[in-house]
């Protein structure tokens, strides 16, 4: 793998790290399997790209993307809590609806942002090459988000959200409105995913309605990969797992794409299979560890 490819993997790992932190909130904290993210990632990209092409400041477009993601997440959560639709199904419904909405927002299935202003222009004064700026910017953003999330999960509200995911009966008997906690948690999660999508669109120079496919699987793979290495003992460790897992996942993907195995040369279309195998390998780690220890 070349240094350039490695830098690219880091950039992707950091920017999708925001998405992974979002998935962590639903998947691990709330225990609410949420596939909405496959729709909110391109939603964020679509909102940001559409606003930028309409001459809106790219920073405002990021805030708008975040808000759009929160709204999409709250729709899923309201379907699941008020209408008592199974969470997985509720999220698939929203995700499906978002596909059409995303095309409406862009007016067509994709928008290119070549020569359009992006947030990276604000850092031109540093005199660094663009691909270094993106890596540094995304690294700072994902670390800030991680630490803010850590702090949030230890607030009164954060504790109530964690209790809702861990033990809803206990939460209710301690006076916690569990439905409201689910709405808040799923909204924040999807807001982060949409922000991640908006940043991806600005860095790769286009938004595409299909860019969200496999988001949830990549998110889960990253979390599981990170957890098997970093551990899950405390909240800060869990969020580290998400960030580290996200970077490792992108590096593994980059490595898989850069090597030729015999006559087989992997192409980007093989990524989903690589991801699937990776998830299985990660899930096998605790099982194999136990087996190995018993063997001794």
């Amino acid at each position: 793998m070349t240094a350039y490819a490695f830098l690219g993997a880091l950039e992707q790992g950091f920017v999708f790290g925001l998405m992974v932190l979002g998935v962590y909130i639903t998947f691990r904290v709330l225990d609410f399997p949420d596939l909405t993210v496959d729709g909110t990632l391109p939603l964020g990209a679509a909102v940001s790209a559409a606003l930028i092409t309409h001459g809106i400041n790219p920073i405002w477009s990021l805030i708008a993307a975040l808000a759009a993601g929160c709204i999409a997440g709250s729709i899923t959560a309201i379907l699941a809590t008020r209408l008592r639709i199974m969470s997985l199904l509720a999220s698939i419904i929203t995700m499906t609806g978002l596909y059409s909405i995303n095309i409406r927002i862009m007016g067509r299935p994709n928008i290119t942002l070549l020569n359009a202003p992006t947030i990276f222009e604000y850092f031109d004064f540093l005199g660094l090459p663009r691909h270094v700026v993106t890596v540094l910017l995304f690294l700072s953003l994902v670390l800030i988000s991680k630490f803010l999330l850590d702090i949030f999960l230890y607030t009164e509200l954060g504790l109530a959200i964690r209790a809702t995911g861990d033990n809803p009966q206990m939460a209710r008997s301690q006076g916690i409105n569990t439905d409201r906690m689910i709405v808040i948690g799923v909204s924040i999660s999807n807001g982060m995913v949409a922000l991640s999508g908006a940043l991806v669109a600005q860095s790769q120079g286009f938004a595409d309605v299909g860019m969200g496919i496999g988001t949830i699987v990549a998110g889960l793979a990253s979390i599981i990969l990170g957890e098997s290495l970093v551990g899950t003992q405390t909240v800060p460790r869990q969020t580290w797992s998400s960030v580290v897992g996200s970077v490792l996942y992108r590096i593994v993907i980059a490595i898989a794409l850069s090597y030729q195995v015999g006559f087989l040369h992997l192409t980007p279309s093989d990524l989903n299979l690589v991801t699937a195998i990776l998830v299985v390998l990660c899930l096998m780690v605790p099982f194999l560890r136990e087996k190995f220890q018993r063997g001794k």
Partner: peptide, 10 residues
């Protein structure tokens, strides 16, 4: 219990 859950140190 019985009080609002705020965004304050838990």
């Amino acid at each position: 219990r019985g009080l609002p859950r705020r965004i304050r140190k838990g």
